[in-house]
Design a protein around this nucleic acid. Structure first.
Lengths: 249, 249
DNA sequence: CGTATCCTTGAGTGTGATCAACATTGGTGG
DNA sequence: CCACCAATGTTGATCACACTCAAGGATACG
């Protein structure tokens, strides 16, 4: 009997249990709310008090420097959670802000901590979410640190498309990204002007377009090619049970 | 009674429990081993089979692109763990390599998974470690994305010093960084040549020096100043129980 | 309408990359 | 012990990618 096979079975079991407990975690988040675009959910350095689930719209996790330079660490899409790890600490290390009008559900940090102490599985689920998040951060770091501007942007677009699809959106919807060029710039570590020029270059190659202020992905395989996208790094880390209609899009 | 105070008490309790379970986790890692510099512990894309604790020496977590460009995601110092989150997935998203001669202790992934299913607290501890790691990654992303070369390098040095001290090293030892300029470059997203020039500039200001191939930090407060170091982002995330002299202003 | 936000484009500048050469060190084998 | 090689650090010259500054156009909103 292969040791590795045993491990894999255990992993699968861990994962499916986590998936079901993710539902349980979702059930804790009762309180619904809507926010306008640009509204701040969590400010940098605040004391964490609530945990959020994005049910509709996009948000960002970000950090800023004293002189105003901003880095968008991560985009939060429908189905993603926010503030989950900060719950364990006294201070949030980054802010969270709505990028579009937003629908969220949330719960008090107390509630989550209590539950965390009680439920074995919730804790495992949390580790698992943390692991997924870290994999994304790793990829993002490689992107910013070692790829050219064009590669960075194409790569980001492909990743967002995959995440949207995985979170349950139709392909046609997953191709529509409500991003400003400033936001892209702040995520990819470049100036807004340069983001524009880089974007224009992709438009000229007909792989993307800008329609009504929304970025539309036209040619995903060409985009993946430009990006030098190394496949499947997202595929083995589904944060939600791959149920047909898992989300609330 | 302030809700926030309750939360904080719960947090503290969670944290101290995690701290003690970190010891327990360490106890699981029985198997000792030594490696030469540059030896690879985990190759990229491998199936995770073991979890490591660095007991002496430095290692790196890294990713590479097809054409050889490399990004060092994180430095692993004595007292740090590796491979802990990958255990939950089928594939490691990054490689781990010794930077100096290395002493490690390790355990089989099976063992960890089994324990994870059994021990409530281990899972919480894992989440907590994941949270700390994520905070570091966030800071690293801000560094690479939004800081100038000089700021980046100074900031990295300050962070490494603090981490070394927090992991229990004497100040004089924590000022000695066994880094090649290529490694620094690959971590900060710049060329080796530029890393050299940037480093030289710091040497000229007498804040650092190179002695016997080891980088020595001379003036930490000046270094923090050059870095625009925003204080204390590491201080509230001690991975070990907060010992009396944890801080170093 | 005036103001704000975002996109677009041009011009000039500079940070950082690339290429190349050389010094120094440490290790290896003849 | 010396010759050789592989890493690493250092420096110069050249060039390109990306930044800043600036200005104008489009759209939305009060």
């Amino acid at each position: 009997m292969d040791v590795c096979a045993i491990t894999n079975r255990q992993r699968r079991s861990l994962r499916s249990k986590s998936a079901s407990h993710l539902q349980a975690l979702g059930a804790l988040l009762q309180h619904s709310r809507r926010l306008d675009a640009n509204e701040i959910l969590v400010s940098e350095g605040a004391i964490p008090t609530r945990v959020f689930l994005i049910t509709d719209g996009w948000a960002i996790r970000y950090k800023t420097l004293a002189d105003g330079r901003r880095q968008i660490l991560d985009f939060l899409l429908p189905g993603d959670m926010a503030g989950l790890f900060s719950v364990l600490f006294d201070q949030t290390d980054c802010g969270v802000q709505a990028l579009t009008p937003l629908s969220i559900r949330s719960a008090d940090a107390n509630r989550i901590i209590t539950e965390l102490n009680r439920s074995q599985q919730l804790a495992v689920t949390l580790s698992w979410l943390a692991g997924s998040a870290e994999q994304r951060m790793d990829e993002q770091l490689l992107r910013v640190g070692r790829r050219s501007a064009g590669e960075r942007m194409a790569h980001l677009f492909v990743e967002l498309h995959r995440r949207l699809r995985r979170n349950g959106l139709q392909d046609s919807m997953a191709r529509r990204l409500p991003l400003t060029q400033k936001a892209i710039a702040d995520h990819l570590g470049m100036s807004q002007v340069h983001a524009n020029r880089t974007f224009r270059a992709l438009v000229r190659r007909s792989v993307v377009a800008l329609r009504d202020g929304v970025i539309v992905l036209l040619d995903l395989s060409e985009l993946a090619c430009v990006a030098g996208f190394e496949d499947a790094y997202l595929d083995h880390t589904p944060p939600l049970p791959v149920s047909p209609e898992s989300s609330c899009a």
